[in-house]
Design a protein around this nucleic acid. Structure first.
Length: 504
RNA sequence: GCUCCCUUCGUCUAGUCAGGCCCAGGACGCCAGGUUUUCAUCCUGGUAACAGGGGUUCGAAUCCCCUAGGGAGUACCA
């Protein structure tokens, strides 16, 4: 395939949600796979829905996800500008071209007119449709005389331009994911192409821009499938070669049915946005994957598998491997329910996959925030002991705090179970044994303790867990001798002695 | 309502185009066992699905028809 050019075309009406990121991802993978170009076009033709910060949010999200844009608002490119609001002048002439060719017409019906028509129709049984059956009875250049039309326009009456849907024919569409889709044109309505505010609707703008920007493949969400016939008809009306289409399955909410929405995340406790977002009006905060501690690689890997799979049993893919393996032919037709648990699992896998140095470095930063100053080397050794126990870097603290500070209290349940009348005496014995061990290293410590237990005939579980209780505060954590070795002899015996005075 | 799309374990899915290799494979989750001085990790095992009904065929998850269910769209939004 040569000269692949794809675009991701979000509208800046709020934060980009993960469904949008997946669409961008598939576009990106497809472009890279075919050595093509990835374009970011901002579709802001509805100025009433403009949300400040949304555009920046989109770009930052893509950047964090590792989705690189070749041409776009920031990057520039041969077809700049890439923001539709800055391309205003372009669209009107194309709308006029359609009128000249007889594929579109002026319509003067006001929003109130249409509202009334809809209400009337509701009381009957049929809904109101602006189409071949009704357009001759409405206020437009098809029902008006040429004079009436010209007068209406020159008198400054607001108008829209509607597509004149052809009658009695079929639109046959090809979609890589869906196959052939056929629709009768009588079931279509005459969509508005150009609004009375002087801006095009999505339908016109996306066709004109895709054509002008040389887009070869349109990869977008399934919610666009119902307007595909209109789009194909528009390409025909202009006499342009349409791009290849691929409509992606929807991302569904984890419980029940329906499209994944912003609310589901808050309700079910997982992020639906790549980055944290604070609504500029309500100040409402939505959590993000980045801030929740997900690695972008894990996030992308998870997203790639929602609606696509390589057909092999491999599940962990770097973005390069995804690029290599990806194909639109292997994209599923049906919607995918989003699974927060699997997403955590992906992150766990990446946490294991990354170098100990990297994880350790990330965790060191968290320690600094907590005001704990310690060496890079010490953190490295601690992290190595506990990192396979967590899904996120920020969870490491909970697994290893006792390497950095003595326990503040002792788990009551464990005390009940492990602290017996004879325990204090045993701890005193082990303290003096620890004092003698040289070198103070895991294997030597293990050996000495084992010898002592056998010699005294103690119960291993009882003794070890009592020691653990004083060192850790509860019954969890890595191997005891590793803890002792890392915190050091002095701290170990100090904690044991302090424990005796507290628990008696 | 109308138009279009979809339908394999609870979830993501393999298998469907080229019918037998599938009394359906993998992963997440869950359950059990094992390893372990604790917790966790890890290992092993288990749980669990072709929406329903007809047909075609020696043979159907795979092909055809019908039914049911779900979803999306139906704005001078994208």
């Amino acid at each position: 395939m040569n000269n692949v050019r794809v675009r991701f075309a979000p509208s800046p009406t709020g934060p980009l949600h993960i469904g949008g990121v997946r669409t961008a991802l598939y576009n990106y993978l497809f472009a890279r796979k075919h050595k093509g170009t990835m374009i970011l076009r901002i579709e802001d033709t509805d100025q009433s829905r403009y949300v400040p910060g949304a555009e920046e949010y989109i770009m930052e999200s893509l950047e964090w996800s590792g989705i690189h844009i070749d041409e776009g608002v920031r990057e520039g490119g041969p077809h700049a500008p890439y923001r539709q609001s800055e391309r205003k002048e372009i669209y009107h002439q194309y709308a006029l071209e359609l009128i000249e060719k007889g594929h579109a017409y002026y319509a003067f019906d006001t929003p109130e007119d249409l509202e009334n028509l809809r209400k009337q129709a509701e009381s009957g049984h049929k809904p109101f449709v602006y189409n071949f059956e009704t357009r001759l009875h409405l206020k437009n250049s098809l029902s008006y005389s040429k004079n009436e039309t010209e007068n209406s326009i020159s008198s400054g009456q607001p108008y829209v331009i509607r597509f004149k849907t052809p009658e009695h024919s079929e639109v046959v569409m090809q979609d890589i994911v869906r196959g052939t889709v056929v629709v009768k044109t009588e079931t279509l309505d005459d969509k508005v192409l150009f609004k009375s505010d002087g801006l095009p609707t999505y339908h016109l703008a996306n066709i004109v821009d895709d054509h002008l920007m040389g887009i070869s493949h349109v990869i977008r969400g399934e919610e666009w499938l119902p307007s595909l016939p209109l789009h194909v008809l528009l390409y025909e009306a202009f006499g342009w070669q349409p791009p290849v289409f691929a409509h992606l399955p929807l991302l569904l909410k984890p419980d029940g049915n329906g499209k994944l929405s912003k609310r589901d995340g808050d309700r079910l406790g997982f992020p639906v946005f790549p980055l944290r977002w604070v609504d500029p009006v309500s100040n409402e905060v939505s959590s993000g994957y980045r801030e929740s501690g997900y690695f972008p690689e894990a996030f992308i890997n998870m997203l790639a598998f929602l609606g696509w799979n390589p057909g092999t049993e491999q599940e962990l893919f770097s973005i390069d491997e995804l690029t290599e393996a990806f194909s639109l032919e292997r994209v599923n037709k049906s919607g995918a329910k989003f699974d927060p648990d699997k997403t955590k699992w992906f992150n766990h896998q990446y946490l294991l996959k990354k170098s100990a140095e990297e994880i350790s470095h990330l965790f060191h930063a968290i320690l600094k925030q907590k005001g704990i100053n310690t060496s890079e080397d010490y953190v490295f050794r601690v992290v190595n002991l506990v990192r396979d126990r967590v899904n996120f870097v920020h969870e490491i603290w909970n697994e290893c705090y006792f390497f950095f500070e003595a326990p503040e209290s002792f788990d009551e349940q464990v005390v009940q179970k492990r602290w017996k009348p004879e325990t204090a005496g045993q701890i005193r014995e082990i303290v003096s044994i620890l004092d003698e061990i040289d070198p103070f290293e895991p294997s030597a410590i293990d050996m000495a303790i084992k010898e002592w237990i056998i010699q005294k005939g103690y119960n291993t579980g009882a003794v070890m867990n009592a020691i653990r209780l004083l060192l850790v505060g509860t019954s969890k954590g890595p191997h005891l001798s590793d803890i002792m070795h890392l915190v050091g002899r002095k701290e170990t015996t100090a904690r044991l002695q302090k424990g005796i005075t507290i628990l008696g």
